[in-house]
Simulated scan of single mutants.
Amino acid sequence: MNQEVKRKVVSAERGLPGLRGTDHVGITVPDIEQATDFFVNVLGCEQFYDLGPFQATDDWMTKHLNVHPRTVMKKLRFFRCKNGSNYEVFEYEAPEQKTSPPLNSDVGGHHLALYVDNIEEAVDFLKSNKIKVLGEPTVRSEGPSAGQSWVYFLAPWGLQFELVSFPGGKGYEKDTSSRLWHPANRSFDQ
């Protein structure tokens, strides 16, 4: 059995049974209407539906969501963002709620990366919409990410996003027929 086939057999035998992939990413925002404007009018996501408000009088919120028992989920809203994961966006009100997003270097820090066909055009669009872009795109010319350009930007409330683009592929692809998932390879319209 060759090494690539053996690796696929091993990976199929471990992990979460029935896993297909990421369905959605949950994001808490300070103002759901501001977030909706950003997700729809800047990113180009499609708004789907709302739920809420919800508040429990017992410990349901702690038991099921690991938050303060008196937390109020004021509203949640679902968005579809082109050919990637959906976003479930929450607006909460909670005792002792932290209102600053973590930095990438903080435990729990994170960012959402969005693939674009033309990074320069996307950066110009963000800047024209008064979105803070952090520096200029970094271009990778060596290593497994060779061929990729990336740059970070911030949502109006400080959530970190990243634009990535690698229209000619990435360097690691020359060493294997396996591929990382890529939004341009899957379309809901197919």
Rank of each mutant, 00 (worst) to 15 (best):
S165W: 01
N185Y: 01
W60P: 05
R20A: 15
E33S: 14
S85Y: 11
V164E: 09
F78V: 06
V133K: 03
D117Y: 09
M73L: 15
Q34D: 14
S177D: 05
H64A: 12
T22F: 10
V89N: 05
Y92C: 03
N86S: 04
I32A: 04
A35D: 01
L76T: 13
N129E: 10
N41Y: 05
D58S: 06
V25D: 12
L114D: 00
E13T: 00
E91Q: 15
D37Q: 08
I131P: 08
E33M: 12
S177K: 01
H68E: 00
G18C: 00
G15R: 03
T22V: 12
V67H: 06
V67C: 12
G169T: 04
L43K: 09
F78H: 06
A94T: 08
S100T: 10
A113D: 09
F125D: 04
A184Q: 05
D124E: 15
P167A: 13
K130P: 08
Q148S: 09
T36E: 05
W181S: 12
E91L: 04
F161T: 07
A35W: 01
E33N: 15
T28Y: 13
Y49E: 14
V133F: 06
P30A: 08
T138D: 11
L76Y: 10
A146F: 14
R179S: 06
N118M: 04
G15L: 01
H182R: 15
L43F: 08
F166T: 04
G18I: 05
R140F: 15
W181N: 05
V133Y: 06
A155I: 07
A35L: 06
A35I: 12
H110R: 10
A122F: 00
Q55N: 04
D124T: 12
C45T: 09
L51I: 08
L159R: 03
G52V: 09
Q148H: 00
W60Y: 15
K170L: 15
A12H: 03
V29E: 07
H110S: 02
P102A: 05
